[in-house]
């Protein structure tokens, strides 16, 4: 039927296509105006002196030149790496360990109860999940300080400014979410593990393989799909995420938690430098795009 259809003249096929075009018209119009246009506009205006008010003025590569001489921007890159790499590793490994533990729970009823428990934090708005850490890190009466006092690590009246001390703030942000098992990652790993056929596992048990052996040589190879997924989306999110900065630190103290995405936000919405912000956005886009293409290539060559 398809071949027959392709044999007809283009005019005939276009005429036959009209109903389908009506079906997709709302989508195509909306994404052209509100998705493609901003993307093109962002790259285009990265070559302009573009302010909140007034005409945009073409300035060539000036924004990019300024960016790579801007100490705040240059400093934001290592800050991002220091925040992102540990958090990425944690977010991949900890839920996996938890999923392995849940997988080995013999009672199915307890197992599914624990799974639901893992999801429990998701019923609070995600911003609440970040805001509660403000109270945990309260310098004088927060949970973190109280625990250290209770164990005698610091004096009874000593305070710790977790988010206000430039030497501590990165560590404090990395630690947020401890023990990093809430949310969907555990579920995704666990459903991968439960999908492994029983025969494989039973056969290895009969061969006398230890639990650890079983995990490393059977489980891990069979859930590389999930691990790759967390890795790819973890990197893409980490490159553009600045929620901690918006909610908790405002980039501070000083510039010690500025990441490129947050600097872009500040340039655009605090200083009104839309052009400079677009240049930072374009660079981040290129990095993310390059990374995505690379991973897709790698995946193809593996398959």
């Amino acid at each position: 039927m398809k071949d027959e259809y392709l044999k007809k003249s283009l005019g005939y096929r276009l005429k036959k296509s009209i109903p389908a075009y009506l079906f997709i018209a709302p989508l195509i119009i909306l994404i052209s105006v509100f998705s493609y246009y901003p993307a093109v506009s962002g790259i285009f205006h990265s070559f302009f002196d573009w302010r909140q008010a007034g005409e945009a003025k073409f300035i060539g590569l000036q924004n990019y030149k300024a960016m790579f001489q801007d100490p705040i921007f240059l400093n934001s890159i290592p800050v991002m790496a220091k925040l992102m790499l540990p958090r990425l590793l944690i977010s991949i490994i900890c839920p996996l360990i938890m999923a392995e533990m849940l997988f080995h729970i013999r009672s199915k009823r307890l197992q599914s109860a624990y799974r639901m428990w893992c999801l429990l934090p998701m019923v609070a708005p995600s911003i609440v999940g970040i805001l509660v850490w403000r109270y945990i890190y309260d310098p004088s009466g927060g949970l973190a300080v109280s625990l250290l006092r209770a164990f005698g690590i610091i004096g009874a009246n000593q305070n710790v400014d977790w988010l206000g001390d430039p030497n501590l703030v990165i560590g404090s942000l990395i630690f947020m979410g401890f023990p990093w098992i809430g949310g969907t990652s555990v579920m995704i790993y666990l459903s991968g593990l439960l999908g492994i056929s029983n025969e494989i596992i039973e056969a290895s048990m009969l061969d006398g393989a230890s639990t650890m052996r079983c995990i490393f040589s059977i489980h891990l190879p069979l859930i590389t799909g999930q691990i790759r997924y967390f890795l790819i989306f973890g990197v893409i999110n980490a490159l553009q995420d600045y929620s901690f900065q918006i909610v908790l630190t405002n980039g501070g103290p000083g510039y010690s938690t500025y990441v490129p995405g947050f600097y872009m936000y500040k340039q655009a919405f605090t200083y009104g430098n839309m052009g400079y912000a677009s240049a930072i956005g374009t660079i981040l886009f290129l990095v993310i795009f390059g990374f995505t293409v690379l991973t897709m290539k790698l995946k193809k060559s593996q398959d």
Binding site: L27, S35, A39, S41, G42, Q240, T282, L284, T292
Partner: peptide, 30 residues
């Protein structure tokens, strides 16, 4: 069936590759 189906579908799906960080500022102005 319609003319340009694959191209248009690709154009829609490719949007998943465009990160929010690129479009935030120009979207605000738009």
């Amino acid at each position: 069936e319609f003319v340009g189906k694959n191209f248009l579908y690709l154009a829609v799906i490719s949007l998943m590759m465009i990160p929010g960080v690129l479009t935030l500022v120009p979207s605000y102005v738009l």
